[in-house]
């Protein structure tokens, strides 16, 4: 049985490159979709904002305490 190997080779190439590209294109599309969904519904908590907020509150508490103490002292 004589088969033309070169033709076979080109068939392999077409199928192979086609599959690789289709796979990657689907992968890119799903990556974009996934990033969109993640950013929209599960945004990362802002790392810098979280520690500063309690600190400010603490400051306020301290200020309140000091003011109260001063008032008490004067009164």
């Amino acid at each position: 049985m004589e088969t033309n190997l070169i033709v076979e080779g080109f068939k392999f190439m077409g199928l192979g490159m086609g599959t690789v590209f289709i796979f990657l294109v689907i992968m890119i599309a799903s990556m974009n979709a996934m990033s969109y969904i993640v950013h929209k519904f599960f945004p990362e908590p802002q790392a810098s904002a979280t520690p500063s907020a309690p600190a400010q509150q603490d400051n306020k508490k301290v200020v309140a305490a000091i003011t109260a103490a001063i008032k008490h002292h004067r009164g």
Binding site: I6, G9, M13, M17, F21, L24, M27, I28
Partner: peptide, 16 residues
């Protein structure tokens, strides 16, 4: 990622 796909042409080109 497409660049990573194109480079696979090395595989199938050599196959031929």
């Amino acid at each position: 990622a497409l660049l990573g796909g194109a480079a696979q042409f090395g595989i199938f080109g050599t196959l031929v």
